[in-house]
């Protein structure tokens, strides 16, 4: 394959990062105070929580489903864990156990969603819509007033900084993304996961346990939402019942910007990270430019639209390039023979 084509394909396959770089350069020129180290760290810090939801939603989109309940899991998992740790049990739990408990609750919610969707074949939209409302309602009931202050361990994950003033939360998020990128690219599990989303029937016939894959996807997403909940709680040093409200739609946006599609089988974790960062970067630059919060929201909506159109164009261009290469080879072959 010619080098030029290779480069073109590389850029197309990592389009979100190309856009991100372009957007960065644009802002570096027009937005005051944008291209500073402090602001970069700021963007990363403020994208951390959202990026966990984006990854969760993205993985669910890859498997070919969707999950609305993630934003409620975000509050429910840490909320119940904290209540258990501080109020409900006669003895108090140590913070590490409470963290494990939070993750376990998130995973259990995902497991429940996954079993209902994969085994009972409930429509994923309806299943997770009902879970979203149930869990939010329970959070409102159980946590009428915020739980605070929290133990040091949580605030460490949510607030603390390490070398170079980089927040611990950002490190955690990066490590999680890298792990998932690795799993999806380099393990049979990851490949079976993507294949299931691409064509569940064909994957089943190929000998993949597709139902189990779907359940795994929801468990992982629940787990990631719980992580997001821990980060959010740690950041504000409390669990309040409004945490995560309205975030799930933006999580869709980030995942789709990162290359996921509603048809499933598309997208990579690193792409999702790019999508989450782009969302964060846009709201950051609009803030710095003095644009109101409501308009920021509208802009993010517009961005989703652009992302979807861009994705279609990207696929067309990619197929066109490869088609031309095929034609070129045929011509060479005929001249040679």
């Amino acid at each position: 394959m010619p080098r030029k084509l290779q480069i073109e394909l590389f850029l197309l396959d990592n389009l979100i990062w190309v856009i991100l770089a372009g957007f960065f350069l644009l802002n570096a020129i027009i937005t005051p105070m944008f291209a500073t180290y402090g602001n970069m760290v700021n963007i990363l810090y403020h994208s951390a929580i959202m990026s966990m939801l984006v990854l969760g939603q993205g993985l669910i989109l890859i498997i070919g489903h969707l999950d609305l309940s993630l934003e409620s899991t975000l509050v429910f998992a840490p909320g119940v864990a904290m209540l258990l740790a501080t109020r409900w049990l006669p003895f108090s739990l140590d913070p590490v156990t409470a963290i494990i408990l939070t993750l376990a609750i998130g995973a259990l919610i995902g497991l429940f969603n996954g079993i209902c969707i994969a085994k009972i074949e409930v429509n994923p939209f309806l299943q997770t819509l009902s879970m979203m409302i149930i869990l939010r309602g329970l959070a409102l009931f159980l946590i009428p007033l915020s739980i605070f202050p929290l133990a040091k361990v949580y605030t460490y994950a949510g607030q603390a900084r390490t070398i170079g003033n980089i927040p611990v939360a950002v490190l955690i998020v990066f490590i999680i993304f890298l792990i998932f990128h690795f799993i999806m690219q380099y393990t049979a599990f990851g490949r079976h996961f993507v294949a299931t989303g691409g064509n569940a029937r064909a994957s089943y016939i190929s000998g993949i346990n597709t139902k189990r894959m779907v359940i795994y996807a929801f468990v992982i997403a629940g787990l990631l939402a719980a992580v997001a909940g821990l980060l959010a709680a740690g950041r504000q040093n409390s669990v309040s019942n409004s945490m995560g409200e309205g975030m799930v739609m933006l999580a869709f946006a980030g995942a789709i910007l990162g290359g996921a599609s509603l048809e499933g089988g598309k997208g990579t974790p690193l792409g999702m990270l790019g999508g989450a960062l782009l969302l964060g970067m846009i709201s950051n630059s609009l803030n710095l430019l003095g644009v109101g919060v409501t308009l920021v929201y509208a802009t993010q909506g517009a961005l989703i639209f652009v992302a979807i159109v861009l994705d279609r164009v990207r696929i067309k261009v990619r197929n066109h390039l490869l088609h031309q290469e095929q034609v070129r080879r045929l011509i060479i072959q005929e001249q040679g023979g």
């Binding site: 993507v194 294949a195 691409g198 064509n199 029937r201 064909a202 994957s203 016939i205 599609s261 048809e263 089988g265 598309k266």
Partner: peptide
């Protein structure tokens, strides 16, 4: 198409 290939991979 439906049962053999995973078309977008």
């Amino acid at each position: 198409e439906k049962e053999g290939l995973i078309n977008n991979l």
